[in-house]
Design a binder for these strands. Structure first.
Lengths: 193, 193
DNA sequence: ATAAAAAGTTAGTAAACACTAACTAACTTG
DNA sequence: CAAGTTAGTTAGTGTTTACTAACTTTTTAT
């Protein structure tokens, strides 16, 4: 996919709008305002709103692809490459928070303060519980102590999240129970002393 | 928070609506239709739409809390408890896919087929790349081979996702770069042969 | 220089949205 | 049994949404 200069400007403005107040802040009205021209002008450059969002996704995928390609093409070993890819990803995301909103958007409530507080609290409590469980295991001697409980909790929560996401993206067709068991087998091996 | 019978019925109907077509499917109109009464009747039971969603979140948090509490209260060891909690969570989510949509909602495009295809493709390619990198490492002898590449990739992606989510929930205030480095340290220890 | 194409404008539409005022039927309760 | 409460109704409001038709200005190419 190839974009005109104006299209890239519009994609950029969309990214900013989303970065400011989430996906629901991306309206034709706001976008036109940010571009300093009127709403119908947008339709000279994109067929409809969906195409703008699609453009945003594809444009940044290109950028990430190129960055990752350079890393994969270097003469590092595999571990070093993974490290470099991770660092590149985090750096790119940090520079483009809007992408987090779009692709990684975890809740639709980020900007509804009432609901985002509730969600935050739920996620927080969940994390605390996992951490204290892990600490118990470390004190018991059943879980390795060379990695701190906070970091191990990140691994557990991440595993859960990714497993559920895969299930969702499969249209709820894959077997979540089996996938959950596989995850546990992995975590058990990784965590045991 | 305590709910009336009718409120629970409404919360349940909301859950179904979201489960069917995502959060954007939860409109007062649809909700009233599903409840087989008129829109204004809803406002006899909830002050506004936000309160309905808040109710949904709190109601299910209660359910999960109770389930997890029983596990924590048992006389298992820490590892067994973590295992039980994981299984309980996956089972609950499987029974209530709507919760995934609300709390874990990964993209806002689940039901805009054009965009969800794009997102799916991006996430898929990302996973494939990580898997092949890990396989390289396993062939090189730098990464452990007692866990298959697919599972290790789940751990990597999960770690990334959780780290970014924490950053986001902190209002982009925490230092993503540092957190990313911590994550890598952990992964390196876990993955090394 | 001029014709055509590209990129803007004004003014407007139809649909969806959350929500409200005013009214009423049906239970509860003193 | 009368008064009040609860839970529903009809009919409607104002706002926001994405999008369009018709017109004008600006840029480009010959």
């Amino acid at each position: 996919m190839i974009f005109t200069e104006r299209q890239i400007e519009i994609i950029d403005a969309s990214k900013d709008l989303i970065g400011e107040k989430g996906v629901q802040n991306l309206t034709i009205k706001n976008l036109a305002k940010k571009m300093s021209f009127t709403e119908p002008a947008l339709y000279r450059h994109f067929k409809d709103k969906t195409q703008i969002l699609k453009g945003l996704l594809l444009f940044h995928r290109e950028a990430i692809k190129n960055g990752v390609f350079k890393i994969l093409d270097s003469d590092k070993n595999a571990l070093e490459k993974i490290e470099a890819v991770l660092k590149f990803k985090f750096a790119h995301v940090e520079k483009n928070p809007a992408l987090v909103m779009v692709i990684f958007s975890e809740t639709s409530f980020q900007y509804c303060s009432v609901l985002s507080k509730v969600v935050r609290k739920i996620l927080d409590q969940r994390k605390k519980k996992i951490i204290s469980l892990i600490e118990n295991g470390q004190n018991e001697g059943s879980i390795r102590t060379d990695i701190n409980s906070q970091q191990l909790a990140t691994i557990v929560l991440g595993g859960i999240r990714t497993t559920i996401l895969s299930w969702r993206l499969s249209g709820f067709e894959s077997d979540l129970k089996t996938e959950g068991e596989k995850l546990w087998e992995t975590l058990e091996i990784l965590f045991k002393k």
